[in-house]
């Protein structure tokens, strides 16, 4: 077991290192950030001063070495545009993204599971077929296009909720979030729904499959034979069994919600990390781009590592296979 974890850890480290090479060298080849920073009427001396201030006059390998040395000490470089440490900038934008992803996850569970339950219980009904058709659309429609339509319908035509921004922040247990004010809630509704759509479809499909499988099992037949009302069988016995895998998968999707939030945040001008990344790419703010990508890679590698370890504890076959290889 320990050997397994150590091997996985080493692999994770290798992935993070390889990604740092790809990202750092890739990002540092694109464009010339200096011309984004100096004023248009700057002379050659100003430009050269800016280049050496940003450390861009050094050989790329030396820049990478300095980056690695900094990264090992938790310093991912300073933003070219804001002059602040890139890491601090990203951490500052992280709560907004987390709150959006969290709301989307809750929406997906609250909307997706009941619909999936219905579709699983009455698979031949018209409503169930409608739900399944809608879930196909949920999978194949591009997120950004759905976001545009949501803005057009709810914000421009109906004027129910605002289209952009984060709204007022409320404070609860010293956590700042727009989930604690009415204005904030009205702002988060559309982006959260937009981000949740794909996961709602996923929750519908998982729940439906689980329910259809469970309804034919012995424990359900036994409960019916015992004379329990259907309501109780479904809500207590069936739900208890299918909720565990559904919620586990949905939890694992949290990482991809944070990844996808790049699109949603840009459309709804949500001031999170994703919007920061797109702005940084457009302004050639290299340290912020590199720092964001490294944080995301680290995030995914950690999630995968935890999943791998959990699975190997739960399922002995995984462990055996790894020792054999």
């Amino acid at each position: 077991m320990t050997v397994f974890i150590i091997r996985r850890l080493l692999q994770a480290l290798l992935v993070v290192f390889m990604m740092s090479v790809i990202v750092f060298f890739g990002v540092n080849i694109v464009g010339d950030p200096v011309y984004m920073l100096v004023s248009p009427d700057a002379d050659q001396a100003d430009i050269e001063a800016a280049i050496s201030r940003l450390g861009l006059d050094r050989p790329i390998l030396e820049q990478y070495w300095l980056f690695l040395k900094g990264a090992a000490q938790g310093d991912l470089g300073d933003s070219f545009i804001f002059g602040e440490p890139a890491l601090r900038l990203i951490l500052h934008h992280m709560p907004a993204t987390m709150e959006l992803a969290f709301s989307a996850l809750i929406l997906a569970i609250v909307i997706g599971i009941p619909l999936g339950l219905y579709a699983g219980l009455y698979p031949e009904s018209r409503m169930a077929k409608g739900i399944m058709a809608a879930s196909i659309f949920g999978f194949s429609l591009p997120t950004f296009w759905v976001g545009l339509m949501l803005i057009m319908l709810f914000a421009v035509e109906l004027r129910w909720v605002p289209a952009t921004g984060r709204g007022d922040l409320g404070s609860f247990l010293s956590i700042q979030s727009s989930l604690f004010t009415l204005d904030g809630l009205s702002h988060i509704f559309l982006p959260a729904l937009n981000l949740a759509l794909l996961k709602i479809s996923l929750a519908i499909r998982l729940t439906r499959a689980g329910v259809r499988e469970a309804m034919g099992l012995d424990y359900v037949k036994y409960a019916r034979a015992k004379g329990l009302p259907m309501r109780r069988i479904i809500l207590v016995h069936v739900m208890k069994n299918i909720m565990i895998p559904v919620v586990t998968v949905m939890g694992l999707e949290f990482g991809s919600l944070i990844g996808f939030s790049v699109v949603t945040e840009t459309i709804f001008a949500w001031p999170g990390m994703g919007k920061l990344l797109i702005d940084a790419i457009l302004q050639l703010d290299r340290p912020v781009v590199v720092a964001y990508l490294m944080i995301i890679v680290l995030f995914f590698v950690l999630i995968n590592l935890i999943v791998d370890i959990l699975y190997s504890i739960l399922d002995p076959r995984v462990r055996l296979q790894d020792q054999g290889a």
Partner: peptide
Amino acid sequence: DLQLSFPASLVALMMVAALG
């Protein structure tokens, strides 16, 4: 396996950030 553990959209986004 490693690559499939990242969503394709995120990989593509990383690549355009690095490629231009």
